[in-house]
Nucleic acid binder design. Structure first.
Length: 329
DNA sequence: AGCACA
């Protein structure tokens, strides 16, 4: 239940401090909607098949390549490549059957890889992809912020090059998944990016993650201003890590903890909301020294600035002193 | 899954 009740609006380039308006119900015409996080539909309770079956992948396809293609599609939830057979077979799960069908049509006969001349062939799957652990479980699949981070390995500067391919055009609206109601505006592949009106005031050496990998984050703690970072890989480079996080808005301090097997780290932010947006934006991020694993980001159990209950205070409401002012939020 | 420091 990560982020329930919070507005994990991702930061915009003109870093406006004003919170997004609660609901721009009336005029959906003129300005783009605020980057609020649409609550995704609840977990699909139906058991319809909402998975597509993908053949025609090049033999050396990577899971990530497929993910990077598919995550543009509305309703995309998870995908997997099965290498057991002679040819790799892909499966992709969508939030409902309509999205799956739309994805099927969008990808049908698509040239996946010009080099190997592979043409995709898509069918509805026989049964749904079983999402074994390892897929982001919150609404990230719907989150536009994830669609923006085409980061990938295009270059070292996230701002220099556009993605080398057009996302499949026909099926998505400005917010990836669209309520079926409003007629979508004419499609413009890049028109929906929140492009900064002015050159980015940002620093040159932005330590962007080199990619993202889905991570499981089912158990999280209550939102707070401190993040816990795990799954960093054995050879994690502290400078790299620090570079990435210290560039995040709201960053205050960071503590890296080297343990035998696992290095973990704690990062304090100005407030819960900046922590939340980093929680969101960097979940699963991969940096060079982390190898190929995506970092897991959780809220810390013990936020900076809040002391752990010190033994004698707990569980003695009848004691003389005032009750420990333990307030979450 | 691995949660320290004030």
């Amino acid at each position: 239940m990560a982020g329930a009740g919070i507005h994990p609006y991702h930061q915009q380039w003109p870093p406006v401090q004003a919170p997004p308006p609660p609901q721009a119900a009336a005029s959906a015409a003129a300005q783009p909607p605020p980057p609020v996080h649409h609550p995704p539909p609840p977990a699909p309770s139906h058991d319809e098949v909402r998975t597509i079956f993908i053949s025609g992948l090049p033999e050396d396809v990577k899971e990530r390549e497929l993910q990077n293609l598919l995550r543009w599609l509305p309703g995309y939830e998870a995908s997997q490549v099965n290498y057991k057979g002679e040819k790799p077979l892909g499966f992709a799960l969508f939030s409902n059957a309509r999205f799956a069908v739309a994805a099927k049509d969008a990808l049908q006969e698509m040239v996946f890889d010009a080099e190997s001349k592979s043409l995709l062939h898509i069918e509805m799957a026989k049964k749904n992809l079983f999402v074994k652990r390892g897929i982001v479980t919150d609404s990230d699949a719907y989150d536009q912020s994830k669609r923006l981070r085409t980061g990938g390995n295009y270059s070292h500067s996230p701002y220099s090059t556009p993605p080398p391919f057009h996302p499949p055009a026909p099926v998505w609206g400005p917010h990836g998944y669209m309520a079926p109601t409003p007629p979508p505006p004419p499609y413009d592949p890049y028109g929906c990016y929140p492009v900064p009106p002015v050159p980015i005031p940002a620093p040159a050496p932005v330590p962007a993650p080199s990619s993202y990998v889905p991570v499981q984050n089912t158990k999280d703690n209550p939102p707070c201003n401190t993040l816990f970072i795990g799954n960093l890989g054995e050879n994690i480079n502290e400078e790299e890590l620090r570079g990435l996080f210290s560039a995040q808005p709201g960053f205050k301090q960071m503590k890296i903890l080297r343990q035998e097997r696992h290095t973990v780290c704690f990062i304090e932010f100005e407030d819960v909301s900046t922590a939340t947006s980093v929680h969101h934006n960097l979940q699963g991020a991969v940096i060079p020294s982390s190898g190929s694993v995506g970092m897991r980001i959780q809220y810390s159990k013990n936020p900076f600035g809040k002391r752990k209950d010190s033994g004698h205070l707990v569980a003695s409401p009848s004691a003389n002193g005032p009750p420990p002012a333990l307030t979450y939020q």
